[in-house]
Amino acid sequence: MRNAFRLRTLLLIVLPVLFFIPIYWTFVIAVGYHGAAYHLPPVWTPLFHWGPIIYVLTHTHWPRYVFNTVGITAATIVLVLFTSALAGYALAEIPFKGHSLYFLLVIGVMMLPQQALLVPQYVVLFHLHMLNTYAAMVIPFAANSSSIFLFRQFFKKIPVSFHEIARIEGVSTLRYIFRVAMPLAKPAVATSVLLTFIAAWNQFQWPLIMTNSPQIQPIELALSHYMQTYEANWRELASAALIALSPILIVFAFTQKHIVQAVAGGDLNAKD
Protein backbone atom coordinates (compact mmCIF):
# COMPACT_ATOMS: atom_id res chain seq x y z
CA MET A 1 0.00 0.00 0.00
CA ARG A 2 2.67 2.50 1.00
CA ASN A 3 4.71 1.82 -2.08
CA ALA A 4 1.69 2.13 -4.31
CA PHE A 5 0.91 5.45 -2.71
CA ARG A 6 4.46 6.69 -3.26
CA LEU A 7 4.43 5.56 -6.87
CA ARG A 8 1.22 7.46 -7.50
CA THR A 9 2.60 10.58 -5.88
CA LEU A 10 5.71 10.30 -8.03
CA LEU A 11 3.64 9.86 -11.19
CA LEU A 12 1.51 12.84 -10.25
CA ILE A 13 4.63 14.97 -10.30
CA VAL A 14 6.58 13.36 -13.15
CA LEU A 15 3.78 13.03 -15.73
CA PRO A 16 2.71 16.67 -15.68
CA VAL A 17 6.36 17.66 -16.00
CA LEU A 18 6.74 15.39 -19.05
CA PHE A 19 3.71 17.02 -20.65
CA PHE A 20 5.18 20.44 -20.02
CA ILE A 21 8.70 19.70 -21.36
CA PRO A 22 8.00 20.56 -25.03
CA ILE A 23 6.62 23.95 -24.05
CA TYR A 24 9.42 24.61 -21.61
CA TRP A 25 11.91 23.68 -24.26
CA THR A 26 10.54 26.13 -26.74
CA PHE A 27 11.34 28.73 -24.14
CA VAL A 28 14.84 27.38 -23.43
CA ILE A 29 15.79 27.39 -27.09
CA ALA A 30 14.27 30.79 -27.77
CA VAL A 31 16.26 32.47 -25.03
CA GLY A 32 19.34 30.22 -25.25
CA TYR A 33 22.59 30.74 -27.08
CA HIS A 34 22.86 30.19 -30.78
CA GLY A 35 23.10 26.48 -31.50
CA ALA A 36 21.65 25.39 -28.17
CA ALA A 37 19.17 23.30 -30.06
CA TYR A 38 21.93 21.05 -31.38
CA HIS A 39 23.71 20.61 -28.10
CA LEU A 40 24.08 17.07 -26.82
CA PRO A 41 23.28 16.36 -24.07
CA PRO A 42 20.51 18.96 -24.18
CA VAL A 43 20.81 22.20 -22.23
CA TRP A 44 18.01 22.49 -19.67
CA THR A 45 18.48 25.89 -18.12
CA PRO A 46 17.31 29.02 -19.90
CA LEU A 47 19.96 31.66 -20.48
CA PHE A 48 17.56 34.56 -20.78
CA HIS A 49 19.01 35.98 -23.97
CA TRP A 50 16.07 38.07 -25.04
CA GLY A 51 17.85 39.17 -28.20
CA PRO A 52 16.20 36.76 -30.64
CA ILE A 53 12.70 37.54 -29.46
CA ILE A 54 13.33 41.28 -29.65
CA TYR A 55 14.82 40.80 -33.09
CA VAL A 56 11.79 38.88 -34.30
CA LEU A 57 9.47 41.50 -32.86
CA THR A 58 11.33 44.47 -34.33
CA HIS A 59 13.02 43.36 -37.53
CA THR A 60 10.49 41.09 -39.15
CA HIS A 61 6.85 41.17 -40.09
CA TRP A 62 5.86 39.52 -36.86
CA PRO A 63 4.30 42.61 -35.28
CA ARG A 64 1.95 42.63 -38.24
CA TYR A 65 1.02 38.97 -37.72
CA VAL A 66 0.55 39.51 -34.01
CA PHE A 67 -1.63 42.50 -34.80
CA ASN A 68 -3.66 40.37 -37.25
CA THR A 69 -4.21 37.61 -34.72
CA VAL A 70 -5.09 40.00 -31.93
CA GLY A 71 -7.55 41.83 -34.18
CA ILE A 72 -9.16 38.67 -35.51
CA THR A 73 -9.42 37.18 -32.02
CA ALA A 74 -10.84 40.34 -30.45
CA ALA A 75 -13.38 40.83 -33.24
CA THR A 76 -14.46 37.19 -33.06
CA ILE A 77 -14.94 37.39 -29.29
CA VAL A 78 -17.03 40.55 -29.50
CA LEU A 79 -19.21 39.16 -32.27
CA VAL A 80 -19.64 35.78 -30.58
CA LEU A 81 -20.80 37.51 -27.40
CA PHE A 82 -23.19 39.66 -29.38
CA THR A 83 -24.78 36.89 -31.45
CA SER A 84 -24.82 34.37 -28.60
CA ALA A 85 -26.46 36.75 -26.14
CA LEU A 86 -29.21 37.57 -28.63
CA ALA A 87 -29.82 34.01 -29.78
CA GLY A 88 -29.45 32.61 -26.27
CA TYR A 89 -32.02 35.10 -25.03
CA ALA A 90 -34.43 34.22 -27.82
CA LEU A 91 -34.08 30.52 -27.04
CA ALA A 92 -34.44 31.07 -23.31
CA GLU A 93 -37.32 33.55 -23.14
CA ILE A 94 -39.16 34.04 -26.41
CA PRO A 95 -41.68 31.46 -27.63
CA PHE A 96 -41.37 32.46 -31.29
CA LYS A 97 -42.66 30.23 -34.03
CA GLY A 98 -39.93 27.87 -35.20
CA HIS A 99 -38.25 27.94 -31.82
CA SER A 100 -37.54 24.22 -31.76
CA LEU A 101 -36.42 24.18 -35.39
CA TYR A 102 -33.83 26.82 -34.63
CA PHE A 103 -32.78 24.85 -31.57
CA LEU A 104 -32.10 21.86 -33.83
CA LEU A 105 -30.19 24.05 -36.30
CA VAL A 106 -27.90 25.24 -33.51
CA ILE A 107 -27.22 21.69 -32.34
CA GLY A 108 -26.75 20.57 -35.94
CA VAL A 109 -23.90 22.99 -36.58
CA MET A 110 -21.90 21.30 -33.84
CA MET A 111 -22.32 18.00 -35.63
CA LEU A 112 -21.19 19.03 -39.11
CA PRO A 113 -17.73 17.61 -39.89
CA GLN A 114 -15.49 20.61 -40.47
CA GLN A 115 -12.98 18.87 -42.75
CA ALA A 116 -15.69 17.79 -45.18
CA LEU A 117 -17.05 21.33 -45.51
CA LEU A 118 -13.88 23.19 -46.40
CA VAL A 119 -14.27 22.82 -50.18
CA PRO A 120 -17.80 24.24 -50.40
CA GLN A 121 -16.98 26.85 -47.76
CA TYR A 122 -14.10 28.02 -49.94
CA VAL A 123 -16.45 28.27 -52.90
CA VAL A 124 -18.96 30.28 -50.85
CA LEU A 125 -16.27 32.70 -49.69
CA PHE A 126 -15.04 32.97 -53.27
CA HIS A 127 -18.47 34.00 -54.50
CA LEU A 128 -18.95 36.41 -51.62
CA HIS A 129 -15.57 37.98 -52.54
CA MET A 130 -14.43 37.29 -49.03
CA LEU A 131 -11.22 35.39 -49.76
CA ASN A 132 -8.18 37.25 -48.47
CA THR A 133 -10.17 39.48 -46.17
CA TYR A 134 -10.26 39.91 -42.42
CA ALA A 135 -14.00 39.32 -42.64
CA ALA A 136 -13.36 35.78 -43.84
CA MET A 137 -11.29 35.13 -40.72
CA VAL A 138 -13.95 36.46 -38.38
CA ILE A 139 -17.53 36.30 -39.66
CA PRO A 140 -17.83 32.53 -40.19
CA PHE A 141 -16.90 32.14 -36.51
CA ALA A 142 -19.07 35.00 -35.29
CA ALA A 143 -21.74 32.57 -34.13
CA ASN A 144 -21.07 29.62 -31.96
CA SER A 145 -23.39 26.88 -30.82
CA SER A 146 -21.89 26.17 -27.42
CA SER A 147 -21.91 29.86 -26.53
CA ILE A 148 -25.55 30.15 -27.55
CA PHE A 149 -26.48 27.21 -25.36
CA LEU A 150 -24.39 28.53 -22.52
CA PHE A 151 -26.15 31.90 -22.62
CA ARG A 152 -29.53 30.23 -22.91
CA GLN A 153 -28.82 28.16 -19.85
CA PHE A 154 -27.84 31.19 -17.77
CA PHE A 155 -30.64 33.42 -19.04
CA LYS A 156 -33.16 30.78 -18.01
CA LYS A 157 -32.05 31.19 -14.40
CA ILE A 158 -32.87 34.91 -14.33
CA PRO A 159 -36.25 35.60 -12.67
CA VAL A 160 -39.00 36.48 -15.15
CA SER A 161 -39.85 39.58 -13.15
CA PHE A 162 -36.47 41.10 -14.08
CA HIS A 163 -37.56 41.39 -17.67
CA GLU A 164 -41.15 42.28 -16.81
CA ILE A 165 -40.13 45.29 -14.77
CA ALA A 166 -37.99 46.37 -17.71
CA ARG A 167 -40.98 46.03 -20.03
CA ILE A 168 -43.09 48.11 -17.70
CA GLU A 169 -40.39 50.77 -17.47
CA GLY A 170 -40.07 50.99 -21.23
CA VAL A 171 -36.63 49.41 -21.46
CA SER A 172 -36.16 47.79 -24.87
CA THR A 173 -35.35 44.10 -25.12
CA LEU A 174 -31.89 44.82 -26.57
CA ARG A 175 -31.07 47.24 -23.81
CA TYR A 176 -32.32 44.72 -21.28
CA ILE A 177 -30.15 41.94 -22.75
CA PHE A 178 -26.97 43.99 -22.73
CA ARG A 179 -27.48 45.97 -19.54
CA VAL A 180 -29.18 43.40 -17.33
CA ALA A 181 -29.21 39.82 -18.64
CA MET A 182 -25.60 39.70 -19.83
CA PRO A 183 -24.03 41.17 -16.70
CA LEU A 184 -26.05 38.64 -14.71
CA ALA A 185 -24.70 35.80 -16.87
CA LYS A 186 -21.05 36.56 -16.17
CA PRO A 187 -19.95 32.90 -16.06
CA ALA A 188 -21.40 32.38 -19.53
CA VAL A 189 -19.60 35.48 -20.77
CA ALA A 190 -16.32 34.34 -19.23
CA THR A 191 -16.55 30.83 -20.64
CA SER A 192 -17.50 32.09 -24.10
CA VAL A 193 -14.66 34.57 -24.11
CA LEU A 194 -12.11 31.95 -23.06
CA LEU A 195 -13.20 29.25 -25.49
CA THR A 196 -13.50 31.72 -28.37
CA PHE A 197 -10.13 33.21 -27.53
CA ILE A 198 -8.44 29.82 -27.64
CA ALA A 199 -10.18 28.77 -30.85
CA ALA A 200 -9.57 32.07 -32.65
CA TRP A 201 -5.98 32.48 -31.54
CA ASN A 202 -5.13 28.94 -32.65
CA GLN A 203 -6.76 29.22 -36.10
CA PHE A 204 -4.55 27.64 -38.71
CA GLN A 205 -6.25 25.55 -41.36
CA TRP A 206 -8.95 28.10 -42.11
CA PRO A 207 -6.55 30.98 -42.84
CA LEU A 208 -4.26 28.56 -44.70
CA ILE A 209 -7.07 27.89 -47.15
CA MET A 210 -8.95 31.18 -47.16
CA THR A 211 -6.07 33.62 -47.48
CA ASN A 212 -2.76 33.83 -49.24
CA SER A 213 -2.19 37.44 -48.41
CA PRO A 214 0.67 38.08 -45.97
CA GLN A 215 -1.22 41.24 -44.97
CA ILE A 216 -3.95 39.31 -43.23
CA GLN A 217 -2.34 36.08 -42.21
CA PRO A 218 -2.48 35.34 -38.49
CA ILE A 219 0.50 34.24 -36.48
CA GLU A 220 -0.03 30.48 -36.79
CA LEU A 221 -0.13 30.63 -40.56
CA ALA A 222 2.90 32.92 -40.63
CA LEU A 223 4.71 30.46 -38.39
CA SER A 224 3.99 27.65 -40.78
CA HIS A 225 5.41 29.60 -43.74
CA TYR A 226 8.33 30.79 -41.69
CA MET A 227 9.06 27.24 -40.62
CA GLN A 228 9.30 26.01 -44.18
CA THR A 229 11.61 28.84 -45.18
CA TYR A 230 13.94 29.07 -42.19
CA GLU A 231 13.87 25.60 -40.82
CA ALA A 232 17.51 25.71 -39.73
CA ASN A 233 17.18 28.97 -37.86
CA TRP A 234 15.99 27.37 -34.65
CA ARG A 235 16.37 30.25 -32.30
CA GLU A 236 14.27 32.67 -34.36
CA LEU A 237 11.73 29.94 -35.04
CA ALA A 238 11.42 29.09 -31.34
CA SER A 239 11.13 32.80 -30.54
CA ALA A 240 8.30 33.18 -33.02
CA ALA A 241 6.60 30.09 -31.64
CA LEU A 242 6.94 31.52 -28.16
CA ILE A 243 5.27 34.73 -29.29
CA ALA A 244 2.36 32.67 -30.57
CA LEU A 245 2.26 30.57 -27.42
CA SER A 246 2.65 33.17 -24.68
CA PRO A 247 -0.83 34.72 -24.71
CA ILE A 248 -2.38 31.27 -24.47
CA LEU A 249 -0.01 30.32 -21.66
CA ILE A 250 -0.66 33.51 -19.74
CA VAL A 251 -4.43 33.29 -20.07
CA PHE A 252 -4.35 29.62 -19.18
CA ALA A 253 -2.21 30.25 -16.10
CA PHE A 254 -4.85 32.55 -14.66
CA THR A 255 -7.99 30.76 -15.75
CA GLN A 256 -7.04 27.09 -15.99
CA LYS A 257 -9.69 25.93 -13.55
CA HIS A 258 -12.38 27.75 -15.47
CA ILE A 259 -11.15 26.49 -18.85
CA VAL A 260 -10.90 22.88 -17.74
CA GLN A 261 -14.41 23.01 -16.33
CA ALA A 262 -15.77 24.73 -19.40
CA VAL A 263 -14.30 22.03 -21.63
CA ALA A 264 -15.49 19.20 -19.42
CA GLY A 265 -19.03 20.53 -19.29
CA GLY A 266 -19.44 22.54 -22.42
CA ASP A 267 -17.35 22.38 -25.53
CA LEU A 268 -17.40 18.66 -26.18
CA ASN A 269 -16.82 19.00 -29.88
CA ALA A 270 -13.41 20.56 -29.40
CA LYS A 271 -11.42 19.90 -32.53
CA ASP A 272 -7.90 18.64 -32.55
Binding site: P16, F20, T26, I29, N202, L223, M227, L237, A238, K257
Partner: peptide
Protein backbone atom coordinates in the same frame (compact mmCIF):
# COMPACT_ATOMS: atom_id res chain seq x y z
CA UNK B 1 -1.15 18.31 -12.23
CA UNK B 2 -4.44 18.28 -14.10
CA UNK B 3 -3.73 21.71 -15.58
CA UNK B 4 -0.33 20.64 -16.93
CA UNK B 5 -1.76 17.54 -18.55
CA UNK B 6 -4.61 19.55 -20.06
CA UNK B 7 -2.49 22.51 -21.17
CA UNK B 8 -1.21 21.06 -24.49
CA UNK B 9 -4.80 20.81 -25.72
CA UNK B 10 -5.22 24.59 -25.77
CA UNK B 11 -1.84 25.36 -27.35
CA UNK B 12 -1.67 26.41 -31.01
CA UNK B 13 -0.79 23.40 -33.16
CA UNK B 14 1.79 25.01 -35.44
CA UNK B 15 3.67 26.68 -32.61
CA UNK B 16 3.97 23.47 -30.64
CA UNK B 17 4.60 21.30 -33.71
CA UNK B 18 7.77 23.31 -34.28
CA UNK B 19 9.30 22.01 -31.09
CA UNK B 20 8.16 18.49 -31.85
CA UNK B 21 9.83 18.60 -35.27
CA UNK B 22 12.97 19.29 -33.39
Amino acid sequence: SRAFIFLPHVTPVVATSIIWVW
